[in-house]
Design a protein around this nucleic acid. Sequence first.
DNA 1: GTCTATAACGAGATAGAC
DNA 2: GTCTATCTCGTTATAGAC
Lengths: 195, 195
Amino acid sequence: MSTARPALKARDTRTLALRAATELMQRRGFHGFTFHDVAAMLGVSHVAIHYHFETKVRLVEAAVAAYCERFAMDLAAIEHAHTNPEKQLQAYVALFAGAASDQRLCLCGVLAAEMVTLPEELRSAVRSFYKQNEAWLVRVIAKATRKRARSARVQQLARGLLDLLEGAMVSERLLDNPSRITGAARWWISSLRYA
Amino acid sequence: MSTARPALKARDTRTLALRAATELMQRRGFHGFTFHDVAAMLGVSHVAIHYHFETKVRLVEAAVAAYCERFAMDLAAIEHAHTNPEKQLQAYVALFAGAASDQRLCLCGVLAAEMVTLPEELRSAVRSFYKQNEAWLVRVIAKATRKRARSARVQQLARGLLDLLEGAMVSERLLDNPSRITGAARWWISSLRYA
DNA sequence: GTCTATAACGAGATAGAC
DNA sequence: GTCTATCTCGTTATAGAC
């Protein structure tokens, strides 16, 4: 039975390192955290992190992948919880507001701002996140406005909401305006009526 | 007459260094550029930059100050060029779109995303930029909507437009969507009608 | 899997010559 | 004002012991 339950310490450190790296980046960006920071959060040496992730870029790649997967699950959960598209949009906004209330930015939003300094592997992962979100928003906004999902207008609205949220996360934290995201989004969603 | 025209080389390097640092940061962020990068753009040694700016933070402080001043002049010019508030908002949007078309972000937008890793002097300078913009937008949006400038709604609209633009700059570059900023802003401005 | 030790490099910053 | 040379430090990464 020794192989049935292969000591979990390793997977644990791997998983915890991913969590830590994600949180650190959401607060400080790619260039704002080090292996040492991650290791310190787990109470281990930075070499232990290197054992699980050969390079910093690979660590971040894995963190972004996990982030996108979690986000995809959140989106699915929203669709399951609400049928009304406006409610779905509100729940979507709450995802961003939740992170911001913890002083965290969207992981891919920060990385997008640092884009030029990142290797191509990371850039394309970040692009995928944006496209994933835009595609989901297009579907929901099409329902909300009773327009065709393929219309340019719906596409534009989806991009606008995503950009508004990404931008508001940054300034809500900067200026300590607690309801900046939800306030702006509420007006935005209600204006859909006139789109 | 030797003091009448004090050799301009120094001021020149100082000014050019500020320009270079600003451009580098708009593309790469605070942690994405070095003294060497700035120096290379001027064809000098990085020590020449240190002569004019004791530390990196002071260099950036000066760059942000100059950026805010230039922005204030742009805002004044817009008010001088247009009387129609909607035209003024369009011209405002064009400021952001112009930088983005050159693959540059808003200097203070990038720094805001990196906020946690910056010293307090820089953070407060970045906050001032946001407040300066919000105050100007409040005035113009109040005119456009015929509401009181002090109303919470106008305040919220001003924040929303600024956040939308800051967010759209990041994603326009990331996804190479050339008219992302202007497209989103045009809809946003037209929706003011229903605010 | 995790550690100590160390290598290799780049960055910010200073000294002193010109 | 600008240079070469140097210092110091933090960061990524690897070697080898336990």
